[in-house]
Design a protein around this nucleic acid. Structure first.
Lengths: 120, 120
DNA sequence: GTCGTGTTCAACCAGGTGGTTGTACATGGA
DNA sequence: TCCATGTACAACCACCTGGTTGAACACGAC
């Protein structure tokens, strides 16, 4: 699949099990077996989940004897928050602008640049 | 589809076309036909995308004669940002603690085990 | 070397998803 | 009223996904 990273990140976090894995990795690194233990699925299934998280850039695996500790890479979260904040802000500005429109009814509907109307 | 809302939101935004739809709805409301126009897919396919976005709570549809304008509901974004920020913060705190450990640790000490975050 | 543990790979399967086409419904205008 | 437009529903299809089992690989311990 040639999906971009943003798609892979959103897709990876769309699964409750994977979100739970991320939550636990936020506390400490863990091996595949550690991670699989609380779930009612095979280790192989968890290994697949980790592959998805890894290809999204959310986790990395190192090598440590025969173990492969999994580590959370929290920086990728920025990708999502940036995307989300961008459109939320845009939508909020739009509502702000609509308020202004209703209040003043200007004849010019020029789009407002990102930071312009945010502060009031 | 018995998934919780957080799963539905992440899943909805995992598709580039749906993210693009959200981006365009952040600028202004639009009808299904408006939204379908720039894409090389049928109106029905876009209608399906909107159904996904709607069930995630990301958009709502009103009625206006025979049209059904689609409207972005940006509040749902909070669900995601809250989840994301929670675990990012947790991971960052953990690194902070790890920094403290490394600073206080004598040079001949063993490497920190994966369970390092457990102390405290 | 052999054994045990941890991990991954391969093949398979059921169910979901994004797309299609075709049909039907709702509404405003002629 | 009939017609054109906008939308939704149903059936179908190819592909993806999350799960399984079974085998293989990679180490450290003995």
């Amino acid at each position: 699949m040639a999906a971009d990273q943003l798609s892979r990140v959103f897709s990876a976090l769309a699964d409750p099990t994977r979100r739970d894995i991320v939550a636990r990795l936020a506390v400490s690194d863990a091996t595949v077996n550690d991670l699989a233990e609380p779930y009612d699925v095979t280790v192989q299934a968890v290994s697949k989940h980790l592959k998805v998280l890894e290809s999204a850039g959310l986790v990395s695996r190192s090598r440590e004897a025969q173990r492969r500790p999994v580590h959370l890479e929290a920086e990728v979260f920025d990708l999502m928050t940036k995307w989300i904040e961008r459109y939320r802000r845009q939508a909020e500005e739009r509502y702000g602008r609509l308020d202004d429109l209703l209040r003043a009814m200007p004849d010019d509907t020029e789009p407002i640049p990102p930071e312009a109307g945010a502060l009031r």
